[in-house]
Amino acid sequence: MRKLSELRVGEVGRIHAVGGDIAARLHKLGFHGGAEVTCEGRAGRGSIGAYRVRGTVVALRRNDAESVSLWD
């Protein structure tokens, strides 16, 4: 199963599950199982990415984005 951090720029994925410490916080921002997520860009040689869920763009560092898994 792929991770959110592996989503290519411009690619759309569907979230499978969110784990880790930030699961609850990300849930409030719309990052939950079944939600559609688009990678809008990356910066700092891929160390941080911008992800859009339902009109809200959130930047996550790589290790935080790794706690979000995507449906294949």
């Binding site: 410490d21 921002l29 809200t56 935080d64």
Partner: peptide, 9 residues
């Protein structure tokens, strides 16, 4: 280290 969430409005 603690997680970091930044909204890009």
């Amino acid at each position: 280290s603690t997680p970091f969430i930044l909204e890009l409005p």
